[in-house]
Computed example of a mutant assay.
Amino acid sequence: MKKIICILFSFTVLIASLFADKSRFYENGKVIDTVYVDSEDGLKVRDYPSLKSNRICGLSHKMRLQVVAVGKEETIDNITDPWIEILIPNIYWKNRDVPEYGWVFGGYLSKNQSEKGMALNTLKEKKEYLLQNGYYWSYNSYFVKFYRNGRYECFVDGTPKYGNGNWTLDENDNLILVMDGIDTPQRYHITKYDYGFFEAEESLLSSNRTVVFGLRVDWEVLSNQDLIYTREMYYLYDRVQLFVADLSYSRSRVEKIIKSGIPPLENSFNSYVEEKYVLYKKYWDPIKLEHQKKADAMK
């Protein structure tokens, strides 16, 4: 009887392992570099690939992570997936110059950043969302702040107030901005509300373009590499600071960005991206090889 139970148990483990989607953590036979947290409740980082191990910190939904190794498989919440060792975001390092690593369960990671935004159902909820923060207004290089009385203010980076106007939002997610002294309104159809930013289509005479309104953060903060993973600015960082980093010609700055787990941009217009990718691989490949050997020994 015990022998039959053991056989059935072994068969169950084998079937579970067959259904584990390990392949999504590999590309061209190698462990991928980047994953994203795919859990609106966040994700715990642990010091060992086990739910019984110590919790190091928590990660926000959609946060970008640098992968260093793929560990043993486990079934958690009816999901069979491997544990993934990551570079802990540097906001949590005890010493900002000494990188730290931890383990997260792969069942709550995605290879691609989720396109699903926030579920705001009523016009009141959407207006309250717009009132929460000031936003960086892409293309115009403005900061815009919405007020409850239907007014808004614009600022240009590093300067006093640029202009005022009236704003409205209708049931169809159409944001109308009318600046004082200018009769022609600016019309934006909001296509996505998300954590720290919203995206909209701007209607122009010649064409339509996507405009991002991101959480307002001073450029001094954006340039501070020690703060890039704070939850308050993560999404603006992901869309703006990554481009700023990509345009940096400073070797020391590039190396600091790479050590923080930020790969060069894909489809970059920067002619230096290939050189940066070489630096990125030169730094991370030996680290990933070393960590993978240790992870294999744990299996």
Rank of each mutant, 00 (worst) to 15 (best):
F11D: 05
V254L: 12
S138Y: 07
N95H: 03
S10N: 07
T184Q: 13
V67Q: 12
N121R: 14
P160D: 04
S50K: 06
L175C: 03
G163H: 03
I4F: 09
V211W: 06
L169V: 00
V144G: 09
S39H: 04
E100G: 01
V221C: 02
L109T: 02
K3F: 13
C154R: 15
Y129E: 04
E266C: 10
G107R: 00
K2P: 07
L279V: 05
R209D: 04
V217D: 07
Y147Q: 03
F197K: 04
K282F: 01
R239T: 06
A297G: 05
F198R: 05
E171V: 14
G58A: 01
S141Y: 14
I88M: 03
I176E: 10
K3V: 11
L227F: 03
F19L: 12
W93D: 02
M179Q: 13
N78D: 13
K94W: 03
E232T: 09
K111V: 15
D33C: 09
T75E: 10
G106P: 06
L227I: 05
S114L: 13
S114V: 11
D97Q: 08
Y92A: 06
K281L: 11
G106A: 00
Q113M: 15
S207I: 09
L18H: 12
Y280P: 02
V156Y: 15
K145M: 11
L265V: 10
V104C: 04
S260R: 11
Y135A: 03
Y235W: 14
L65R: 05
W93F: 02
D183P: 03
Y193P: 06
S207V: 09
E266T: 14
V104G: 04
V37M: 00
A245S: 13
L65D: 07
A16C: 12
N112E: 15
K111Q: 12
L236P: 00
L59V: 01
K62G: 06
P160W: 04
N208H: 13
N78Y: 13
W219R: 11
S53F: 06
L289I: 12
V217H: 09
L279F: 02
K111I: 13
Y280K: 05
Y234R: 14
Y36S: 08
H291W: 12
S250C: 02
R24L: 12
N140P: 00
N208S: 14
